[in-house]
């Protein structure tokens, strides 16, 4: 009896077997699941140890991801949401759709202390202005120097993109009440404001601007994947605003245990070693073997700026109004 069952098991097509496995639904942003993003490798690595089937659903960017989750509310099929950042977590927590991760005592390699019970960080990076070393020789050391220079920059719109919102909060956290003044002075340096990072970076590479708002890690891509060391990020004295990308378990999940396992897996080498050269960000926990030496050539800001989640949500609207007023004139 036992034997024949085993034979039957062997004969079953693998597709059928796959259906018996529990499915872990992970909602994330689109570039995570692309051929060139971390998704495929992360999926393979976790599936090898979980005996489950990982199903990614991608939608737009982090903000679109949260919007989708809010739209679905507690009827969502998501078990895990991966790809929010610290500017979105307050709104996400407020929705009551997320559950505690239960992860404790993880030794994060983050520039800030991390003790959020719900959101688990998986990578991070600093926003920075990236330029071409062969074209820009006098590199501004802060926003005021940038505003005083003749350099042209392209930035992203805070209303439609996460880096744009990051820049808004960067200026606000560095300059407080003087932020509007800074934006007014920057106005004549800004070539244009694009809907997202993709357009901005594309314009920069086409030579439409001297600098682009991106990440300190962007030059690593050119160095490692293209063998091109001409790109660099400009270190700013005010410090650099931090983006921490996080994931969380959805409260209504029917795969609670699997979701917990995934979040725990997320901060191990199997996940973290994939991040640097697919997402081009720093891993939240440094993998044992370290990361590509190309990352050692990057600037490391002396000061990390970051509003706590609740505060980011509070200053956001006022900062946006200042930004709009200063750039609309």
């Amino acid at each position: 009896m036992m034997k024949s069952l085993m034979i039957a098991g062997l004969l079953l097509p693998t597709a059928l077997l796959a259906e018996d496995k529990p499915v872990l639904n992970i909602y994330t942003y689109d570039s995570f699941i692309s051929e060139w993003g971390p998704g495929p490798k992360v999926e393979a690595a976790f599936e090898a140890e979980c005996g489950c089937d990982v199903k990614f659903t991608g939608s737009g960017d982090g903000a679109a991801l949260l919007a989708r989750l809010l739209l679905e509310g507690d009827t969502t099929e998501a078990d895990v949401v991966l790809g929010l950042d610290t500017n979105l977590t307050a709104k996400a927590a407020e929705s009551g759709l997320f559950a505690d991760s239960g992860l404790k005592d993880v030794a994060y390699d983050l520039p800030v202390a991390w003790d959020d019970p719900v959101f688990v960080p998986y990578d991070w990076g600093y926003f920075a202005f990236v330029y071409d070393k062969t074209k820009v020789t006098e590199v501004p050391a802060d926003f005021e120097a940038l505003a005083a220079s003749n350099l042209k920059v392209v930035i992203e719109d805070p209303r439609s993109s996460t880096p744009g919102l990051g820049l808004l909060l960067w200026v606000k956290s560095a300059y407080g009440d003087k932020a509007e003044e800074v934006w007014k002075n920057l106005a004549d340096n800004i070539v244009t404001v694009t809907p997202g990072w993709t357009e901005a970076y594309g314009l920069f590479l086409k030579g439409e601007a001297d600098m682009v708002l991106s990440y300190t890690t962007s030059p690593a891509y050119h160095l490692i994947a293209e063998n091109d060391d001409s790109k660099a990020a400009a270190p700013f004295n005010e410090g650099h605003y931090l983006q921490v990308e996080v994931a969380a378990k959805v409260a209504t999940t029917d795969q609670s245990e699997l979701a917990d396992r995934f979040l725990a897996f997320m901060v191990t080498d199997g996940f973290q070693s994939v991040i640097p050269e697919t997402n081009w960000m720093y891993p939240a926990v440094m993998p044992k073997g370290g990361i590509n030496a190309g990352f050692d050539t990057l600037i490391t800001p002396a000061k990390a700026l970051l509003y706590p989640a609740g505060e980011a949500a509070k200053v956001r609207d006022a900062a946006l109004a200042e930004w709009q007023a200063a750039l609309s004139r």
């Binding site: 903000a63 809010l70 805070p158 439609s160 800004i190 244009t192 809907p195 314009l203 750039l327 609309s328």
Partner: peptide, 25 residues
């Protein structure tokens, strides 16, 4: 409109819709 508009002066209704959706929910 957004890419070539040069800044928030060139805000269109479609962008306002976008903003209402994903910035203000």
């Amino acid at each position: 409109a957004l890419t070539l508009g040069g800044g928030p002066k060139a805000t269109t209704i479609e962008l306002a819709i976008f903003q209402a959706f994903r910035f203000d929910f």
